[in-house]
Nucleic acid binder design. Structure first.
Length: 576
DNA sequence: TTAGGGTTAG
């Protein structure tokens, strides 16, 4: 039998595949293994194929050969049901025993799609058993699964054991560490890679930039950017997009704009989305909306993320009518609003005191509202003292199984504002009976290239005594300006154990104090602090005052947005 | 013949 390859080259539709199958059967060549496997592969992975049909052919084969299995596994690995690929793999392992490195590779690709570490570990053991560990490509795929599933220790161990590492394996580990919670380690590897004589490429720098974004460290980001310029990697649109993202996340929306405006390649949808999001997070709502309009003139249609970015920009700047009209325009643009768009609009209305309208929006959703949405509504209820709606939202939250400390505190505070102390007591009881989980708050600051992390009230920093001394000094000077801590509700209602977290030693204040004594940010540069949660109301007041007393610009990046404190005010206009 | 590493939200 001649190769069917020339024939295959000319196939362009599913009916061609069926004709080929008929041809193979009628000519008695279906039993000819390469042709049969090719047919299954075509069905399973070509753009005009049909995975279901591929499995039908496969099932008709009494003893499928290795390549038949591989074709099916490969097809499922890239389908919407990657787990099925692993099921086929396990069947093959039991029945056929003749799997090869490719079988493992396709199956691992499937694992990385559904983050199946358990399955990956099983395949890993087979890789060892079959002696495929010298296969760099296969091991890199395995490393990537571990890294993507956040099993970073396995990823690192594997990397350490590789007989040869190349750029791809370094890249997989760097990206994995950056996207996991080890951005510092990712940057360390990026630096080490250069000293070991491997030249980072665009994929490497994407990982490194992403690490800088996570750290929120502008100096580190600038160093990576210099490397990118030196190596001419700044013509790559993905690299530019990552730089935009990094700069605004590191507090410099101006530098993000510079990158955006001077891109040496065509801007993609992601470039626009990132820039709009960045402007929004820094409170430049109207600039964000200008860009939003400019984008359609540039012939790039907005997608769901564009709309979300524009809506967030409206939220952070309090642009209520603009936000509503953008939301309304979504349908006509053919972009279907999802939970996040509804959440954003509910937030916009809620913050503006239009709590009932926010509730109506939530009710009008085609899908079921999620925890975040009810929390948003609850937050607005607290601000505007809407007890009834607060109770509705809380009930929904309990039903959805939310055990977040914040939910209880908000409800309790809403009651407290109406002096309904019995109800306050009941909420507190409920908190005790359901082990309410609390995410620990932490902040960090980069000083002279190294990162210092602070947890509320911690004394782990080598200079903690000086930091606390500085805080005492700050508090004296603030009290002299008539500052009174807003502890009334917060401390009262959260419960006893919270009391030790005295507001004065909140992580963001420890970081700011350290910034002041260490000259963080350098001459005249702003002190920049990153926090994992939202900044607390009292710290917000305090840092405004600190910026005035010490005549220092302070930038705080919290979970939701940026706050630029200068001369006693904040860029968010106290609206966040 | 077929395989490895990649950018935006929350």
């Amino acid at each position: 039998m001649a190769s069917i390859e020339p024939l295959v080259q000319r196939l362009s539709s599913f009916s061609h595949i069926k004709q080929l199958q008929a041809h193979l059967i009628t000519t008695g060549h279906f039993g000819f293994l390469p042709s049969r496997s090719k047919l299954i592969e075509l069905c399973a992975i070509s753009p005009f194929g049909n995975l279901h049909y591929a499995t039908e052919i496969f099932c008709q084969i009494q003893t499928p050969f290795k390549n038949d299995w591989n074709a099916i596994i490969r097809g499922f690995a890239r389908s919407n049901e990657p787990k099925i690929a692993v099921t086929y793999y396990q069947n093959m392992f039991r029945k056929a025993k003749n799997l090869d490195a490719l079988t493992c590779s396709f199956s691992l690709q499937a694992c990385s799609r559904f983050l199946g570490v358990f399955e990956a570990k099983q395949i890993h053991s087979h890789i060892v058993r079959f002696g495929f560990t010298a296969d760099d490509r296969l091991v890199t795929t395995l490393l990537d699964v571990y890294a993507k599933s956040n099993d970073l220790s396995s990823a690192r161990k594997l990397f350490g054991e590789m007989p040869r590492t190349d750029r791809a394996s370094w890249n997989a580990l760097i990206a994995g560490l950056a996207q996991g919670d080890q951005p510092k380690e990712a940057l360390g590897l990026f630096k080490r890679m250069k000293t070991e004589g491997l030249r980072p490429d665009e994929i490497t720098v994407l990982g490194a930039i992403s690490a800088c974004s996570q750290l929120g460290s502008l100096p580190e980001g600038e160093t990576v950017h210099s490397y990118i310029k030196e190596s001419n990697l700044d013509k790559n649109v993905q690299v530019c997009n990552a730089l935009i993202d990094m700069y605004y996340k590191c507090g410099s929306v101006d530098k993000a704009c510079d990158v955006f405006r001077s891109m040496g390649c065509r801007k993609s949808l992601v470039s626009w989305n990132s820039m709009i999001m960045g402007l929004g997070m820094h409170g430049h709502g109207s600039d964000a909306l200008k860009l939003f309009n400019e984008m359609s003139q540039d012939g790039i249609p907005a997608d769901a993320i564009t709309y979300l970015s524009a809506l967030c920009a409206c939220n952070h700047a309090g642009l209520v009518s603009e936000g509503l009209s953008i939301f309304k325009s979504m349908e006509s643009s053919g972009v279907k609003p999802n939970v996040k768009h509804y959440g954003s609009v509910a937030d916009l209305l809620g913050r503006a005191g239009r709590v009932k309208e926010a509730y109506e929006i939530i009710k009008s959703m085609p899908s079921k509202p999620d925890i975040v949405l009810w929390q948003t509504l609850l937050g607005a209820c607290k601000t505007y003292g809407e007890v009834e709606l607060a109770e509705i939202a809380s009930r929904e939250l309990v039903e959805l199984g939310s055990h977040s400390c914040g939910d209880f505190v908000l409800l309790s505070n809403t009651y407290a504002a109406h002096e309904r102390w019995d109800d306050v007591g009941k909420v507190r009881e409920a908190m005790k009976s359901k082990a309410v989980k609390k995410i620990p708050g932490f902040s960090f600051i980069t000083v002279k290239g190294s990162i210092h992390k602070f947890i509320n009230g911690d004394q782990d920093h080598p200079d903690w005594k000086d930091i606390y001394k500085k805080i005492d000094e700050i508090s004296l000077r603030m009290n002299g300006m008539g500052y009174a801590a807003e502890t009334s509700f917060v401390l009262h209602d959260i419960g006893e154990e919270e009391k030790e977290n005295v507001l004065w030693y909140h992580s963001e204040r420890l970081a700011v104090a350290y910034g002041l004594i260490s000259g963080g940010g350098g001459d005249g540069k702003p002190i920049q602090v990153n926090k994992n949660l939202r900044i607390c109301v009292d710290c917000h007041v305090a840092i405004k005052l600190i910026s005035k007393i010490y005549n220092r610009e302070i930038i705080v990046r919290d979970r939701a947005r940026f706050h630029h404190f200068k001369d006693g005010t904040c860029s968010c206009g106290d609206y966040w």
